[in-house]
Every structure is written in C-alpha cells, then in structure tokens.
C-alpha cells in the first residue's frame, strides 16, 4: 500500500490521562474513502482515540500522520489548518446551543470562507436538506429531537466539505429507524463526497451494514486486539473477545 491511499496513520501511539494509560501501542491505517470502525468495550478509550485524531488530546507517545504530516509535531497553526479538512460529529451532537441550526452551520463558513451572506444562506439550506432537515434553519438545538440534533451536527460537520468525517457513536440513543437512516446517510455521503469516514460504534447492525475495516481496542488488555476487514473479523475472529463482540455470544460457546 502506498502512502497516497492512506488518509490517517496511527503509529505506536500510547494514550494516557496523566499516569493512567488508556491504550498502548496502537497501530493502524485508515484508507482513503473507506468506512473505518473503531470498536471496543465501553471505557476502552474509543472516544479518547478520536480525540487524539482530531487534535483535542496529545498522545503520550507515538504519532498520528495525516497524509505525510506528523499532526502532533506540527505547530498549532498548522494543526488548525489541517483540522479544517475534517469534520466531527460528537456523541451528543454538540450543537452550539445559543445559536440556531443555520447559525451553527454558517459560523465556520463565515469564518473560513469569503462567500457572501447570500451564498452562505444557500449552502446552509443545502446542508440541512442533505440531512433531511430542510426548513429547520431557525430552530434552536433545544427545540429538536435527539436524532435531529445528530443529523444537524452532521450537517455542521460537513460545512467545510471535509475530506475526513469522524463520528462518535452516531446511533447511540437513537431509535432503530433513525439509526438506520443515519447509516444510510453515512454511506451516501461517502459515495457522494468520496470522504473517508471513521466511526466509533458498537451497534452491530451498523458495523456490518456500513463498515469496511475496523480496529478493536480492548479495555482489559489496554491494546488493540484485532484489525482488518469487518467480514474477516466476523468470520475468523482473532480472539474470544472479538468473537463475543461481533457475534454476541459468550466466549467459548458457539
């Protein structure tokens, strides 16, 4: 594999809060245009891993490469510039609660582009319609449901046409229909925009429906215990815990 198909490369990365190590020696690549799933039991550090990839937390050792840029070795302004290429959908949506949906999406556009107000209004309307929220411009986050918040969060994450999208448990807390809708949307976005997508999820239905490849981080071992194509991991799980996770069966039983 040449570097040019790799969007993000995590190399020998150790993550810790203070002295408390969360995961050791993570090593994996996320390829351009794929939907990469980050799996693991709760508390294993999936959200923390995402924070390391989007610039919110510095690894205690190891590197995060974007194309060939060593993300954490770069200066803060370079990092900021690089992070404009990705969008993040947080677990709770994380819409700015004092702004309407339109303002939420417009803020990055106003800040980082030279578009006229009229253009921005049109772009906002387009992004909202992509996530099925056409006409919701004037609503505040507190006025819409959880599923709508996530979709609005996704619209905002796509504001600057990112090359890479990160999702933290997109379907958590959603009813099965909304969760399915979000999955479909993710696939369409990947196909339509050609974006690379990294998703933290333990929703099996989503993992099998949309995942290309994935990594499994183990809370007890504090390291990655599986990496590869989702289908391969399911058919030939490298260890009992991954088997249990992907097949919902107790270890040992079949």
């Amino acid at each position: 594999m040449t570097t040019s198909d790799t969007a993000i490369s995590i190399q020998n990365m150790t993550m810790a809060y203070g002295d408390f190590v969360i995961q050791r020696d993570l090593n994996f690549d996320i390829r351009k245009g794929e939907i990469f799933i980050i799996m693991g039991d709760s508390g294993s550090g999936k959200s923390t891993l995402l924070k390391h990839m989007i610039g919110l937390k510095r690894p205690s050792s190891g590197t995060v490469l974007y194309d060939d840029m060593d993300f954490w070795a770069a200066s803060e302004s370079e990092r900021k510039l690089a992070s404009r290429r990705f969008g993040v959908l947080y677990q709770s949506g994380a819409l700015w609660s004092v702004m309407t949906l339109a303002e939420n999406i417009a803020l990055p556009l106003r800040t980082y582009t030279d578009y006229s107000e009229k253009d921005i209004t049109d772009i906002v309307a387009l992004k909202l319609s992509l996530v099925g929220l056409a006409g919701f411009e004037g609503f505040y986050p507190s006025e819409i449901s959880g599923g709508m918040k996530k979709r609005a969060g996704l619209a905002r994450a796509m504001a600057l046409d990112p090359e890479i999208l990160f999702f933290d448990e997109p379907s958590a807390g959603l009813d099965p229909i909304s969760a399915k809708r979000l999955d479909d949307l993710i696939i369409e976005l990947r196909d339509g925009l050609g974006a690379t997508i990294a998703i933290v999820t333990h929703e099996l239905a989503s993992i099998f429906a949309i995942g290309d490849r994935g990594v499994f981080v183990d809370a007890d071992a504090k390291k990655q215990t599986a990496l590869g194509k989702i289908d391969d991991l399911r058919n030939a799980p490298p260890n009992a815990k991954v088997a249990e996770f992907l097949n919902r069966s107790a270890p040992g039983s079949t």
Binding site: S83, W96, P108
Partner: peptide, 17 residues
Amino acid sequence: GTMQVNEEIDALKTFGF
C-alpha cells in the same frame, strides 16, 4: 460548564475557534 458537558467546547476547538 454546560457547554463543556455538551461537547460544544470540543466542537469549537475542532473548528479552530
């Protein structure tokens, strides 16, 4: 504090604010 709980501050940071 509420913005922190809602991850709104993280969202600001990732947009470079």
